[in-house]
Amino acid sequence: MGVINLGEPRVGTISRVAPKPIKFVLNWGRRYSLWVFNFGLACCAIEFIATSMSRHDFIRLGVIPFAPGPRQADLMVVSGTVTDKMAPAVKRLYEQMPEPKYVISFGACSNCGGPYWDSYCVTKGVDQLVPVDVYVPGCPPRPEALLHGILRLQEKIAGESLGERYGPASPVPVAQPQAESRPPSPAVLRRPLQRPPQPTSADRPEDPPEASPENPPENPPREPPQPPESSSGQRPDAAPRPGPLPPPNSVRGPADPSEPNLFLP
């Protein structure tokens, strides 16, 4: 299987050119129509189901859990332990979702590994694979916590602008390796861990040697991995998108060199 340049998602044009009231209406539509795809992996999946049931009923909030597959979903809730064997499937299903898409990491395991923090086969946090919008802490979190997480996500959607999210104009131009002009060779997939792309500015002459792909140097240095425990359930700045925006001509998909290739064979 060769490497395919998936190209930029063709969304957000309307949001870019539309006047503000229309943007508001469009955001309102996306906010209250979150078709959710439950990536149920472990214990937390049961609490996810409990949240969709009569007592908690997140369908009230417009979160419709009947999206049969990733192609129709807007929101992926990763609930449960992501193992290294499962990781490619998580990433693949995320890529099958159409933009704009959101991810809620539900429970300690998918936030940071949880009680399996020292296991040899558990991915310590789904945010190493896909960008996460809202983290819900707990092991497993109560259904109320998921409801809160959904509300937080809705607030986030209401405040965002698709035009900026997908637009070409990036305030800080992210340096792209020259390799971006042509599709990278399949050898990229078999390469071991690689350094993140160097920033152009000369203020960082050398990267710290231990800079791992989870801590791209564009990001403010993160605290050591910890289970997020704020009651808000949200760590909006911790989403490990390379920088605030995806680089303009980046290759989406498995060959993206700016994303960690930790879990490829």
Binding site: V25, G29, S33, W35, I59, R60, P98
Partner: peptide
């Protein structure tokens, strides 16, 4: 209860769906 946040009795829920669906990738 079913959808009840969007508009009175959730009546606007399908409209939110209708706004969102065509604008997706």
């Amino acid at each position: 209860l079913g959808p009840n946040r969007v508009g009175p009795l959730g009546l606007l829920q399908p409209i939110a769906d209708g706004l969102k669906l065509p604008l997706k990738e």
